[in-house]
């Protein structure tokens, strides 16, 4: 395959970026999208030019590190697929492909296609955990959990923290990411003691990081490589209202 690529180049956070056009020939349809960029980078290095910086690690769709907007879609055209698992057979010969970083105020560009997603870590720090110190746990089977509850928790827990939901949302909202963690822990009995504080603190941290609000377009679910359902946003909203009403509970 022959491709024309338009790729966002930006030296660092302080400089302005721009789209740069590259031609790439003899691309195999069996290559992954990132392998296609590897080939381009080899050619750039051969010419003495700086390779294109992009985030990637596991290359099997689970670490959540890869993060491109491809032809306007976070992680590209294929549903339920991270960029690293997208293959060139999804594109036509002579295609023009536009490649940009995930764009959101809370995800500043570091270089080229690499963005800073540490805002997600700070939201987790606000409450995305169960406070159980090492060594304090009872026997694992002393707490039976209904299978459907455990499965629902697992559906939410499958989030890989890539940030595609934010990149896809016109409000750059992180509601799906936050809701996934709130619902994962909120559906488990171990998560009940911290449930109210968790949702209140995480939502507060999410707002403080500059993520927008949800206006029910559900682009996040469509872009999510793990198909996290927006029903978890509904669950988080319920939890949030309940927690707000019962806030002064330590009387």
């Amino acid at each position: 395959m022959n491709l024309t690529l338009h790729i966002w180049r930006q030296k660092n956070a302080e400089t302005r970026g721009k789209m740069v056009r590259y031609k790439l020939a003899d691309v195999s349809p069996d290559m992954s999208f990132l392998e296609m960029l590897d080939v381009l980078n080899e050619q750039l290095i051969d010419k003495g030019e700086d390779p294109i910086a992009f985030d990637h690690d596991c290359r099997e769709g689970i670490c959540g590190m890869c993060s491109l907007v491809i032809n306007g879609q976070a992680h590209g055209p294929r549903r339920a697929t991270t960029t690293c698992q997208l293959h060139m057979r999804e594109f036509k010969n002579n295609a023009e492909i536009y490649i940009e970083p995930f764009r959101a105020g809370a995800f500043p560009v570091i270089r080229d296609l690499v963005v800073d997603r540490t805002a997600f870590d700070r939201v987790i720090q606000a409450g995305g955990f169960i406070a159980a110190n090492t060594g304090s746990a009872p026997d694992a089977n002393s707490l039976p959990i209904a299978r459907e509850k455990a499965e629902t928790a697992m559906d939410a827990a499958a989030c890989i923290g890539c940030g595609a939901c934010v990149a896809a949302c016109k409000n750059a909202s992180a509601m799906l990411f936050v809701a996934a963690k709130v619902s994962h822990l909120g559906n488990l009995p171990q998560g009940q003691p911290g449930r109210n504080d968790r949702v209140l603190n995480m939502v507060e941290a999410m707002d403080a990081e500059g993520f927008g609000n949800c206006t029910n377009y559900f682009e996040c679910e469509a872009a999510c490589p793990k198909e996290i359902s927006v029903k978890f946003i509904a669950q988080m909203n319920r939890d949030y209202v309940k927690a707000s009403l019962s806030k002064p509970s330590y009387v």
């Binding site: 159980a132 060594g135 694992a140 039976p144 209904a146 455990a150 928790a153 827990a157 171990q190």
Partner: peptide, 22 residues
């Protein structure tokens, strides 16, 4: 033995049978 206990306490959603046990 302790690892499984600790991970369940942290909220790891291990697979379960219909009786709710691991």
């Amino acid at each position: 033995l302790n690892i499984i206990d600790q991970c369940v306490a942290l909220g790891v959603p291990f697979a379960r049978d219909y009786g709710g046990l691991l």
